[in-house]
Design a protein around this nucleic acid. Structure first.
Length: 397
RNA sequence: GGAGAGGUGCCGGAGUGGUUAAUCGGAACAGUCUGUAAAACUGUCGCCCUGACGGGCUACGCAGGUUCGAACCCUGCCCUCUCCA
């Protein structure tokens, strides 16, 4: 691969905006090892595919020899990032933040190379901040500047509250850039304002302003809203392979290209082929989804796991067969099936089990069950819904 | 300091004395269909008994009260939010 091609891939695919692009190209070509700042806000614990878009970028830069500086936002997390939020977020306790950061990092390094990452906690510098420092920092910007920001502006106009701490958020994030002497800051497009404050602050404090590298926001599995944990439309990087595979298969079809584009290394040429095949209906979207699922699992785990998940899907869902390793469950020789599936946690309550029975969701060895009381033999496979199975072991006496 | 709004099921959000286990939307689950765990369509969606019909119990911030009857009225308490200064 030529350097030129690398550049194209690096600066175009999965990128929504770069400020200032020319300067970044210059920096990249001068051979200096760049410090790439990425902030993690440990207000929640799950990294999902939406984050992965940016993390993949970091990884690509790492492969070119650059240094990732991961900042654990243990102070800003207590404020709550106002980005895109239409209401003030709840503050977190210090303990909660610590615990979250741990799990967060475990997932972070599924994509990013740990050896080429420097981990810094905000408390390293903010822990020493005095009121005098705070006043000095805040005096550099005006209310008007901050109100220019979209989400603040909207809330202000609508008469909704903006906590003073929220105004502090961009300042703290900006100061992080100063503290670690960032060359480039990475994040989603919604981070633009914060990044730009960083640039200004660095300039004021006589540092070279960082470049801002922004990635597009990934649309969630519902195909409508951006991927986020609170909306429940996400695929977490820490989920088991079968789970990831399944969620990919249940993606709305028209999300496919975007996911390939932002989350895989499929070449531009192939991407274009996919696009055309879908447009002309010459390929079943299912096939492409399978491919996408394999690509993702390979990245997050390995090829072997991807192949296993693939096999499992074909077997269980397409051929309606049985998965590997069905759990055994002890039952009486003659027992109400509803009691069994409730006991086996396949239904939350007896009422739910009853509903499942009425809806014809329960079958034994492929035969639908309609009555409650049934006699069993060892090895009977009870299926509940589309994908829950237990293997019967008849209890003696 | 003053004025006002509100707390309903997983979430959003109706309802303001009986016909309300509680409209509707979303999520979720099931079934049908499909080369897709997509889409579409249908149904379910508090707990318990019943094959079903049906029945019982518990629920609308918390605690009391009024009433034959309360998510809805009254009293107290807790919590959230907004506006003016």
């Amino acid at each position: 691969m030529s350097t030129k091609l690398d550049m194209n891939r690096l600066l175009k695919r999965g990128v929504s905006e770069i400020i200032v692009k020319e300067e970044l190209i210059q920096l990249l070509s001068c051979g200096k090892k760049l410090r790439l700042k990425e902030g993690l806000d440990p207000s929640s614990t799950d990294i999902h595919l939406g984050h992965m878009v940016g993390l993949r970028k970091l990884h690509q830069f790492q492969e070119l020899g650059h240094q990732v500086v991961l900042i654990v936002g243990d102070w800003t997390a207590q404020i709550g990032d106002p980005s895109g939020a239409s209401a003030t977020r709840p503050m977190l306790t210090a303990e909660k933040v610590k615990a979250n950061a741990e799990t967060y990092m475990k997932q972070f390094f599924r994509v990013v190379d740990r050896d080429k990452t420097e981990i810094r906690w905000q408390s390293e510098w903010f822990g020493k901040f005095s009121l005098a420092d705070v006043i000095k920092l805040t005096s550099k910007f005006t209310v008007a500047q901050f109100l220019a920001r979209d989400d603040f502006n909207n809330r202000f106009k609508a008469g909704k509250p903006i906590a003073i701490t929220e105004l502090l958020y961009p300042l703290l994030q900006a100061y992080d850039s100063v503290a670690v002497q960032a060359d480039v800051e990475f994040g989603g497009q919604d981070q633009k304002f914060n990044f730009l404050v960083g640039r200004e602050l660095q300039t004021m404090l006589r540092q070279r302003p960082q470049q801002c590298f922004m990635t597009p926001l990934l649309v969630g599995t519902d195909g409508v809203q951006k991927m986020s944990k609170s909306l429940g439309n996400y695929i977490g990087v820490d989920e088991p392979p079968n789970e990831i595979y399944g969620k990919v298969m249940s993606l709305v079809d028209n999300m496919l290209i975007q996911y390939f584009d932002l989350l895989t290394d499929v070449s531009d040429k192939e991407l274009e082929e996919f696009r055309q095949q879908l447009a002309s209906n010459s390929v079943n979207p299912m096939e492409l989804k399978k491919r996408l699922a394999r690509e993702l699992i390979t990245q997050l785990y390995n090829e072997e796991e991807a192949a296993k998940a693939d096999e499992n899907f074909t077997k269980v869902f397409q051929k309606r067969g049985l998965p590997e390793g069905i759990e055994e469950f002890e039952v009486g020789a003659e027992e109400d099936i509803r009691d069994i599936i409730t006991r086996a946690n396949l239904a939350k309550s007896h009422s739910e089990a009853n509903r499942l029975l009425q809806q014809g969701a329960i079958s034994i060895d492929g035969v639908k069950v309609s009555a409650g009381k049934i006699s069993y033999q060892n090895g009977n496979i009870i299926k509940v819904g589309k994908h829950h199975f237990i293997k019967v072991v008849v209890r003696n006496n």
